[in-house]
Simulated scan of single mutants.
Amino acid sequence: MITLSSHVLDTTLGSPAHNMVITLTTPAGDRVTAKTDNDGRCKNWGDINFSAGVYCLRFETAEYLQTHHGKSFYPFVDIHFEMLEDGGHYHVPLLISPFGFSSYRGS
């Protein structure tokens, strides 16, 4: 079984980025939109049944960064990643600031 979660952290404030819109696009082109919770986490992808393939998470960063920092160089961040059939749980964190971001495969 494949599962997916994400976590957005604001590295400038040192706190979770809550209420950020994230859109997941599946290999078939299906899309589901969700928001990060108060802890900056997201794991509710509706009724998506994950299978192997290349997925994309689009983090809508502009509104969050403009609200909390008054500026945003990146209007959104797209992270493309591949999930394997025997991959188990995938966790895709995003670390953001008004002028930079990074990501990695978490646990």
Rank of each mutant, 00 (worst) to 15 (best):
A28W: 02
F101C: 07
V8L: 01
T12N: 13
G53C: 04
N44G: 08
V77I: 12
G46C: 06
H91R: 08
G100P: 00
V21C: 04
F99Q: 14
V32R: 02
T67W: 03
D47Y: 08
H69R: 06
T11W: 02
A17M: 08
S103R: 07
N38A: 15
I79C: 13
A62I: 02
G70A: 03
P75S: 11
S107L: 08
A62Q: 10
G40T: 04
G70H: 07
F99A: 14
S6T: 15
Y64P: 13
T11H: 01
H80P: 01
Y55R: 00
Y55L: 10
A52Y: 03
L94P: 00
T67Y: 06
M20Q: 14
Y64N: 14
P98Y: 12
V8A: 00
D37M: 09
M1C: 03
N38S: 14
V77R: 05
S5P: 00
M1I: 06
T67Q: 08
T61S: 14
V54R: 15
T61N: 06
G88N: 11
W45V: 00
D39Y: 10
P98N: 10
E63I: 05
I2L: 15
Y104H: 14
T11R: 09
G100M: 08
Y90V: 03
A28G: 03
I48H: 01
H89M: 01
L9E: 04
D30H: 12
G53Q: 04
T61D: 07
F76M: 06
H68Q: 08
H18D: 14
D10Q: 10
H7S: 09
